[in-house]
Simulated scan of single mutants.
Amino acid sequence: MQQQKSFEQHETGTLYLVPTPIGNLADMTPRAVETLQQVPLIAAEDTRHTQKLLNYFDIHTKQTSFHEHNWQNKRTELIDHLLAGHDLAQVSDAGMPSISDPGKELVAAAVDNNIVVVPIPGPTAGVTALIASGLVPQPFYFYGFLSRKKSEQLEELHQLSTFRDTVVFYEAPHRIKTTLQHMQKVMGDERRVVLARELTKRYEEFLRGTLAELVSWASSNEIRGEFVVMLSGYTGDITAVDQVNDEEMVAISPVDAVKQLIEAGEKPNVAIKQVAKQRGLARQDVYNQYHGLEGK
């Protein structure tokens, strides 16, 4: 068991996790500004981006880069800095460190080395969008970014399609149309979704509607801005499937076997796993056959 008392005296330095504005610089909290002013070093996802923020608030603290491409080499250096008794602040380009941004690796290493980790509250895009979405805000399930690969994204969406909770995703502007189309393919036309883009900025916008409506919007408009995608919880019946005779299942094609289980009420992904296990096939091969992805 490890017990952390954040504000007692410690031999090591403290790792401060400092959120930065997701758009509007006025959302930077006084405590966040003070922390960045007082620490001797800031670990930033993009030092050029963070420098603009530091200049705005007249902060002169030294920076070092810590991002997805260098964290394996840089983590040891930053842990040594903290073990030597020096504080460190970590920031991402926008919002909370570690939430779909670099950070979790440094936090995990700090915890392993009994270094105090102090989170500073502040902006986060997912919750900011959720409370204005009009969807049920709790419970909710934060997923972050879906896979960029088509087959993997479809599988993720199948797994999430019957969640009862509101599901929150992040998506880039150049991928939002395709992602919405995949959601429509998996969940149908009528599932309700809310898109939030350009949060806290001048052109902040919420789009609320069915998947069919939002796919139509994405197909006929120029897409700009980072998106928060919020999927309404599943409200249909989730029925357990009666055991299907193994011999009958083997006598038909894998695709037909999957369809038979789905017709009986099973979720597609579970049906695919069951057929693959019964026939000694790779689950991904059955998945690709069912979705017509072979050769793609």
Rank of each mutant, 00 (worst) to 15 (best):
residue 72 Q to M: 11
residue 134 G to C: 11
residue 285 D to P: 02
residue 163 F to N: 11
residue 295 G to N: 04
residue 110 A to I: 05
residue 88 L to P: 00
residue 146 L to P: 02
residue 262 I to A: 05
residue 179 T to V: 11
residue 270 V to I: 12
residue 112 D to Q: 14
residue 118 V to P: 00
residue 142 F to C: 03
residue 68 E to N: 10
residue 115 I to S: 08
residue 14 T to I: 12
residue 253 S to M: 03
residue 289 Q to E: 09
residue 11 E to V: 12
residue 159 Q to I: 14
residue 229 V to E: 05
residue 244 V to T: 10
residue 256 D to S: 15
residue 51 Q to M: 13
residue 259 K to Q: 03
residue 164 R to E: 10
residue 176 I to A: 02
residue 228 V to C: 08
residue 74 K to Q: 13
residue 209 G to Q: 05
residue 245 N to H: 12
residue 97 P to I: 05
residue 31 R to G: 08
residue 148 R to C: 10
residue 143 Y to R: 14
residue 3 Q to G: 14
residue 274 Q to R: 15
residue 78 L to Y: 06
residue 16 Y to E: 06
residue 187 M to W: 04
residue 170 Y to C: 06
residue 128 T to S: 15
residue 264 A to G: 10
residue 165 D to A: 14
residue 88 L to A: 05
residue 81 H to E: 14
residue 85 G to H: 02
residue 178 T to Y: 08
residue 253 S to P: 03
residue 199 L to H: 03
residue 42 I to S: 06
residue 150 K to N: 06
residue 58 D to S: 15
residue 294 E to P: 01
residue 213 E to L: 07
residue 37 Q to R: 15
residue 21 P to Q: 03
residue 80 D to P: 02
residue 158 H to F: 14
residue 217 W to D: 15
residue 241 V to D: 04
residue 181 Q to V: 06
residue 106 L to F: 10
residue 295 G to I: 01
residue 131 I to L: 13
residue 91 V to S: 05
residue 129 A to E: 07
residue 96 M to Y: 04
residue 225 G to W: 04
residue 33 V to T: 14
residue 107 V to K: 00
residue 205 E to G: 13
residue 125 A to K: 00
residue 29 T to Q: 06
residue 113 N to I: 11
residue 231 L to W: 10
residue 230 M to T: 04
residue 94 A to M: 02
residue 5 K to E: 08
residue 253 S to V: 03
residue 200 T to N: 02
residue 134 G to F: 12
residue 250 V to R: 15
residue 255 V to Y: 01
residue 233 G to A: 06
residue 23 G to E: 08
residue 34 E to N: 13
residue 247 E to Y: 09
residue 25 L to D: 04
residue 186 V to R: 04
residue 250 V to W: 13
residue 255 V to C: 00
residue 213 E to F: 09
residue 62 K to D: 11
residue 287 Y to T: 03
residue 96 M to N: 02
residue 13 G to V: 10
residue 29 T to L: 02
residue 116 V to N: 02
residue 218 A to P: 05
residue 37 Q to G: 10
residue 25 L to G: 04
residue 193 V to A: 03
